[in-house]
Simulated assay, not measured.
Amino acid sequence: MNSNELKYMELIKSRYPQLDLSKIEFNKTDGSYSDVAIVNNEAVFKFARYDWSATYLRNEADVIRFIQDFVDLPLPDVELVDQNVTKRRFIKGSPLYRNLLLKSDYQTQDAIAKQIATFLHQLHTIPVKKAQHANIGYSQMNRTQEEWLAELETMQRKILHYCTDYVKEYLRQIIQPVIDNEKFFDFQSVLIHGDLTPNHILFDKSSRKVSGIIGFSNAGFGDPAYDIGMLIDHLGENFVKRMSRYYPISPACLDRARFYAYISNFMWFRDVCDMISTRDFSRFQIPAKDRDIFPLGTLTTAFEIKASKK
């Protein structure tokens, strides 16, 4: 156990002497801005890794405290221990891996789609005025048309040196519609999750249902298409189209979601190029990039099984 872990344990002991610390698991790889301690699968503590990252912990606590009366899915009941530490209830479940989703039967996949769609609909339709009165701010992921154009220009300057002609043209085809359409990023701001990736969607294997949503550090006002785009990026557009039965998605919103899904990989490579230029790889993490490919060993899809029964 290193010095930071000892320090974390001492803080937990001093604040929560009734907690049994015989089983404590430290996870310092999943959080981008914080270290995590899981105590007896009962409580989860987050410790800000940097001085500036404490803002994310406080934002998560504020957002969850506000939205828990508006959504049905379980949320981590976050308590602010101090400005750099939060505590929340442990929610049973594992990340909603795409392989796990695709190996599930048709009914399970549809139930998951309905749960996630209902959650997003409930989140995105929370009255804006009520959220403003609760001092909820803008998501870190929220950008205007001008900000996106500047971001894309910077990104291209940093990564094109490392791209083949094929990749350059691939990227151009993603960016050009955004440049050509001055109203591409016209949307009504709503409350968004801001980081709705599979590791923040917990799945309970015994009940075959989504057991909770976590990871609200980037939540705030923004484009609803951003949340949908993260789902397209990781779980696929076909899954999102199934969700649209329960949460209708307009063509314009779907196009923005596709853009966010496409561009996320290039934004990650932009960060890698920054690491190369500064030789600072302290925050380097290798991502698992899902593709629209079925899991190894899959012989028949859930859709083919349903079709064969007709």
Rank of each mutant, 00 (worst) to 15 (best):
N2C: 11
S3C: 01
E5F: 09
M9L: 13
S14Q: 12
S22H: 13
V39R: 08
K46D: 10
Y50V: 07
Y50G: 07
D51N: 08
N59Q: 00
E60S: 10
A61F: 01
I64L: 10
I64F: 03
F66E: 06
I67W: 01
L73T: 00
D77I: 13
V81N: 12
D82E: 13
K87R: 13
I91C: 06
R98N: 08
L101S: 02
S104D: 01
S104G: 02
D105A: 09
D105V: 09
Q107A: 11
I116T: 04
T118M: 05
H121N: 14
H124Q: 12
I126A: 05
V128W: 00
Q132D: 02
Y138T: 05
Q140E: 10
W148S: 09
L149C: 07
H161G: 07
I174N: 10
P177R: 08
E182K: 15
F187I: 04
D195L: 06
L196G: 02
K209N: 04
S217N: 11
S217H: 09
G220T: 09
I232W: 09
V240G: 04
Y247R: 11
S250V: 07
R256A: 00
R258S: 02
F259V: 06
S264N: 14
D271W: 13
S277H: 13
I286P: 04
K289I: 15
D292M: 11
F294L: 11
T298E: 10
L299C: 15
T301V: 08
A302P: 11
